[in-house]
Amino acid sequence: MSGAASPGLPWLQAPLRELLATQRGHAVLLAGPPGIGQFELALALAQAWLCEHPDAAARPCGGCASCTLVQARTHPDLLVLLPEALQEELGWAAAETESEGKAKAAKAKPSKEIKVEALRRAVEFAQQTSSRGVAKVVLVHPAERMNAISANTLLKTLEEPPGQARFVLSTEAVDALLPTIRSRCQLQRLAPPSEAQAREWLQAQGLAGAEVLLAAAGQLPLAARQLAQQGLDAAAWQQLPARLAGGEVAALAGWSVPLAVETLQKVCHDALCVTVGAQPRYFPAAAFKGLRAGLPALTAWGAELRRVARHEEHAWNAGLMLESLVAQARRALHSAE
């Protein structure tokens, strides 16, 4: 795509062109697995809708005043709704004074929901006249983070949109959305890029051990890059099952509880695969060499990890929780001895 909203994700170029050529209504819903760039595509689509280039085929051009404003996060006709917990990660954090930031930090953890107040603001925004005379665009990501009240607040505007309003919603869990929301949007399903394309892109980002980290992320390239940004390298990933089997709490030192649980679920999944003679998905088979894990214990360990994952927002003592998780891993990975 020619605009700068998502220039480095080549697998999004075809979906963007398809959407621009086939768009039928005022609302689009992008659905696909996490880690492939739904937000980047949603932003590129919004930029294309707002682009002021005279040739429609060239939108988003990346060079007009409107595209420049989108890239600077200051376009007056674009409203991006994100949970507080994702705003900084996606580069869309609202500016705030130092005192406001300290007050927010002291008050509570950033919310993972898109709150009803934000949707009310979006409804009001959509009803206003376009500042630049092209369109008003509301972007909601991830749409499944709207609770029932928030979603119903948006629903009426989706049913009867003001003339210049357009909406782009992106989701990693399309079935979690209200059927009434889904039915009022043009659905575009997104597939992950091929392994070769994802690996080539990661290598172009300067990521060492791209193939290993891509497997670690379930073949999702943005998730693989995030693992690298969190300090994980290919060698450490390959050594992880053996270190857990040895009871090394240091293998997870500094990890958040949600990341540790997600990683241990991958270890458990692949240990189960190896135990029944199947090919592991996230780790090379050699990573489990010498480990003797029993099927009943691995099954019970997987169930316990799912239970912990359901309560990952609990105010755990991270150090004690990681010790407990590593102890469980050690027992399960030696359970056949």
Rank of each mutant, 00 (worst) to 15 (best):
residue 203 Q to R: 14
residue 227 L to W: 13
residue 213 L to E: 00
residue 194 S to H: 10
residue 174 V to L: 14
residue 186 Q to R: 05
residue 224 A to D: 11
residue 222 L to S: 09
residue 207 L to R: 12
residue 250 A to Q: 11
residue 232 L to H: 10
residue 238 Q to F: 01
residue 241 P to D: 10
residue 250 A to N: 00
residue 206 G to E: 11
residue 252 L to N: 11
residue 180 T to R: 05
residue 201 W to L: 12
residue 233 D to K: 01
residue 174 V to K: 14
residue 220 L to Q: 14
residue 221 P to G: 07
residue 222 L to A: 14
residue 250 A to C: 05
residue 192 P to R: 08
residue 213 L to W: 02
residue 205 Q to R: 08
residue 234 A to F: 04
residue 246 G to N: 13
residue 229 Q to I: 01
residue 219 Q to E: 14
residue 186 Q to F: 06
residue 176 A to L: 15
residue 188 Q to N: 06
residue 213 L to I: 00
residue 206 G to Y: 14
residue 182 R to G: 03
residue 198 A to E: 07
residue 194 S to Y: 03
residue 184 R to T: 03
residue 233 D to E: 04
residue 251 A to V: 03
residue 235 A to P: 00
residue 206 G to F: 06
residue 238 Q to R: 08
residue 231 G to H: 03
residue 228 A to N: 03
residue 178 L to V: 08
residue 227 L to H: 02
residue 252 L to G: 11
residue 189 R to N: 15
residue 215 A to I: 04
residue 204 A to P: 06
residue 249 V to S: 10
residue 201 W to C: 09
residue 252 L to A: 05
residue 209 G to E: 05
residue 218 G to M: 04
residue 191 A to W: 11
residue 199 R to V: 00
residue 213 L to K: 00
residue 222 L to C: 13
residue 201 W to K: 00
residue 217 A to G: 07
residue 247 G to L: 08
residue 174 V to E: 14
residue 238 Q to N: 11
residue 209 G to P: 10
residue 190 L to K: 08
residue 197 Q to K: 12
residue 204 A to F: 09
residue 212 V to Y: 01
residue 203 Q to C: 07
residue 236 A to P: 02
residue 240 L to I: 05
residue 180 T to S: 06
residue 247 G to I: 07
residue 201 W to G: 01
residue 250 A to I: 05
residue 179 P to H: 08
residue 252 L to Q: 13
residue 228 A to I: 08
residue 185 C to M: 05
residue 214 L to P: 02
residue 215 A to T: 11
residue 186 Q to C: 09
residue 243 R to S: 15
residue 237 W to L: 09
residue 231 G to A: 03
residue 210 A to K: 04
residue 211 E to S: 15
residue 190 L to H: 05
residue 191 A to P: 04
residue 251 A to D: 05
residue 235 A to E: 10
residue 223 A to Q: 14
residue 181 I to D: 02
residue 204 A to H: 09
residue 221 P to R: 02
residue 228 A to H: 11
residue 186 Q to P: 10
residue 251 A to H: 00
residue 242 A to M: 04
residue 176 A to P: 05
residue 196 A to K: 15
residue 185 C to T: 12
residue 197 Q to Y: 10
residue 230 Q to K: 15
residue 217 A to E: 11
residue 190 L to M: 14
residue 212 V to C: 02
residue 217 A to T: 07
residue 193 P to L: 12
residue 241 P to G: 12
residue 200 E to H: 05
residue 234 A to Y: 12
residue 188 Q to K: 15
residue 231 G to Q: 03
residue 190 L to C: 04
residue 190 L to I: 12
residue 236 A to L: 08
residue 234 A to T: 07
residue 193 P to E: 02
residue 252 L to Y: 01
residue 219 Q to V: 10
residue 244 L to G: 04
residue 222 L to H: 14
residue 185 C to P: 02
residue 218 G to P: 00
residue 201 W to D: 06
residue 232 L to T: 13
residue 237 W to I: 05
residue 181 I to H: 00
residue 243 R to A: 15
residue 184 R to P: 06
residue 194 S to N: 10
residue 213 L to Q: 00
residue 228 A to P: 13
residue 246 G to A: 15
residue 248 E to I: 13
residue 231 G to F: 00
